[in-house]
Design a protein around this nucleic acid. Sequence first.
DNA 1: GACTCAACCTGTAGTTAAGC
DNA 2: GCTTAACTACAGGTTGAGTC
Length: 357
Amino acid sequence: MKTNDTLEKLKIKSKWENVYWFSRMLISNDKYGSIGKDNSLLAVIASSLRIIESENKSSSSNDIIALQKMALKNLLLNRFKKAKSRLDRIQRLIRDLESELITPDDINTFILTCESIMIPINQAIENIPSNDKDFTLSIATSYLDIQGENGLATVINIWDDLGVKGCLTVERNEIIRAFSALRLLLSNDYKIEDFDKDVILTSFVQEFERRAAQKRKSRAGSSLEDVTTFILDYFKIKSAKAPAHFQADIEIDNWVKSKDGWLIGISCKRTLRERWKQVSSAESGILSKFKIKNVYHILTFDEDLSDDKITLLGNHRHIFYLPDNSRILNHAVNHIGLKEYVRPMSLFIEDLRKETN
DNA sequence: GACTCAACCTGTAGTTAAGC
DNA sequence: GCTTAACTACAGGTTGAGTC
């Protein structure tokens, strides 16, 4: 069976199904330039399409649609005329939308997508914190006040867990609020049947979750950068400036100057995954050139840390600080080939002090 | 202010190795 | 040969820093 026939069979039979595909097109960055994040542009597009329809009631529907498509094209080209690198993608969006906007129903679906899917999702996403800091700062301080350096691993884990839970709770509240509002709108204003309503509401939820998930990833990374800064500040360890012109293959969050004048880079990540390959491509000679003594990696999730990663990076003067109760740490500290490259997280501050005092 | 770009992370699919 | 575990690489929206 041909692929097109299979797709045709799988296709959902609802005139509103394109709500999902329009949402995808509006937010896809790689393919279409992600214009759907701009609320004011979406509002202008939706109202322009409405006005054209109401002002041309005597014209044929084909003529109205032609006018609407032209207006959409002009709005987008004008808005992004200066965005050189995005323009190709915007033009592709215009081309692909032109072939999807054929009937008045298509236009109505597109308007509903702009006004009642994209804008509420944008607002909901914006209401979710981009950073866990608000949820965690005071609790983390309390832990360090009471437990000192022994509380370090707990603080990092709490920072991770509590922040995630706080933000997920906000996400839940946002999706429920926006979902309810959309459901009411579809029942009261659009008088849409149950199945069609399901088609629209699930599009909304899918797209919200996709974007919230990406925000979660971004947030997880930036929060861990905050935790190292917080810890260094708390223990009054002075940060140093990054070496000029040093381009690390992996982001170094903080720098500390050791007593011999060399630098220690500190990188805090949740996991290394495949990004370690970028690091390993850098020879340790480059570190010496920039007077970098070591790179300390603080990892909160180390299950994917293989022996290969530890030895390869360890050879390039990278040291891993892992949670004290970690299985990987336990394995590595008892292994002759690995033990030099791993340290328990509770010794992080002590090690830094030895280097700096 | 608008735009560009690199880094962020994690679920998942694909590949390879180990164990039976 | 089959199953399971371990490892590797990718996708892709969000973010924040840098540039104009």
